[in-house]
Computed example of a mutant assay.
Amino acid sequence: MTSSTAGDASWSIGELAARAGVTVKTVRFYSDQGLLPEAGRSSGGHRRYGPEALGRLRMIRSLRTLDLPVPDVGRALERDDALADLVADRLRELRPQLVALRWREAALHLLTDCSPEERARRLDLIGAMGLPPDTDVLARFWRRWLFPARLPAPLLAGIVDVAVPAPPHDPTPAQVLAFGRLRAIVTAPCPPGVVDRPPAPRRFRDGFRPAVLYSGLREAYDLAAPELRAGRAPVGGEALDRYVAAWADAGGARDSAAFRRRLTGVLADEPRLDHYWDVVSELATPPGAPPEPTPGAAEAWLREALTGAGPRAWTTADSDPPGRRTPP
């Protein structure tokens, strides 16, 4: 094959490959795909390329370096406005892949510097939840717990959003472990008669209105949050009054000393939920900062306040009006 001269405006396939720093096989492949225009053929039928093919070949190499598929490379070469759209699409595809890689990296770090027994336990947690973690199992647990058939959809969604933390895009090893623990908490079998008992609202009589309860509890938790942040001991006050009122309103009862005594008997510690909220607090709290109040922490604080507050003083008869429902 005769080399081109200064007056020759075309190059052979080998000359183009040498100028671009690629193999002849690469040039032939892109030519066969219709991505490299030929300037013509030699008298022997060999392909010849003009100088514009060199710039196009370099552009193809750059786009392929970004892992754009060959058909997308062709579209980018045909239309000036196509490249921006293709880059945006590729970024959207890469984001979940990058998140998955970060979770795997954090999980690998989690398996270092621990005993063989602890490493095996952590591997079990990682394998059960997957990476990144699927939080649907957590959401299903809370929907089953919260009277899903009797709660308005917006209220149910709001509660689940608070109860189910969103996995971070760039997790730490501790966060990987925390999500594994959350999944284990909601999927582990419960000791009979201890943490598998129904939630307190389900121990009320027919006619109990859970939507009224959970709306009121949300307000009570908000009132209790400053007390928790300040580290104050559980005491009576506005937060506790709103907490008791939420239960009374939901059951069609009146807040009274007698009601509070009965409510104390109905409410009980929920070890599984307490453990769950402890882990959620770890996820929500930056290292070295005080624990961030969660609904679970507020619930425990208010239950303790109810138990230790003693009977509330009343100026009217300490009984429930006729027709009102009270806890069993």
Rank of each mutant, 00 (worst) to 15 (best):
residue 1 M to H: 05
residue 9 A to Q: 13
residue 9 A to W: 15
residue 12 S to E: 10
residue 13 I to C: 03
residue 25 K to P: 00
residue 25 K to N: 06
residue 29 F to K: 00
residue 29 F to G: 02
residue 32 D to P: 00
residue 48 R to E: 12
residue 48 R to P: 00
residue 56 R to F: 01
residue 62 S to Q: 12
residue 65 T to K: 03
residue 66 L to R: 11
residue 67 D to H: 15
residue 73 V to T: 03
residue 75 R to K: 11
residue 81 D to S: 10
residue 83 L to W: 04
residue 88 A to D: 15
residue 91 L to A: 10
residue 91 L to E: 09
residue 93 E to C: 05
residue 96 P to V: 13
residue 102 R to Q: 12
residue 104 R to P: 02
residue 106 A to E: 01
residue 111 L to H: 11
residue 114 C to K: 06
residue 116 P to C: 10
residue 118 E to D: 11
residue 121 R to D: 10
residue 123 L to V: 14
residue 131 L to N: 04
residue 137 V to M: 02
residue 139 A to L: 02
residue 140 R to P: 00
residue 141 F to T: 03
residue 147 F to Q: 10
residue 150 R to Y: 06
residue 171 P to F: 15
residue 174 A to L: 06
residue 178 A to F: 00
residue 182 L to I: 12
residue 184 A to E: 10
residue 191 P to L: 12
residue 195 V to E: 14
residue 202 R to F: 08
residue 204 F to S: 08
residue 207 G to M: 10
residue 212 V to F: 01
residue 219 E to A: 15
residue 224 A to T: 06
residue 228 L to W: 05
residue 238 E to P: 05
residue 244 V to C: 13
residue 245 A to T: 07
residue 250 A to K: 12
residue 251 G to A: 15
residue 252 G to Y: 11
residue 256 S to F: 10
residue 258 A to K: 14
residue 263 L to S: 06
residue 268 A to I: 07
residue 270 E to D: 15
residue 273 L to F: 07
residue 280 V to E: 00
residue 281 S to R: 07
residue 284 A to K: 01
residue 286 P to C: 06
residue 289 A to V: 01
residue 294 T to L: 04
residue 294 T to E: 00
residue 296 G to V: 07
residue 296 G to L: 07
residue 298 A to L: 13
residue 300 A to N: 01
residue 302 L to W: 07
residue 303 R to G: 00
residue 308 G to I: 01
residue 309 A to W: 02
residue 313 A to P: 11
residue 314 W to G: 05
residue 317 A to P: 01
residue 322 P to L: 14
residue 323 G to L: 10
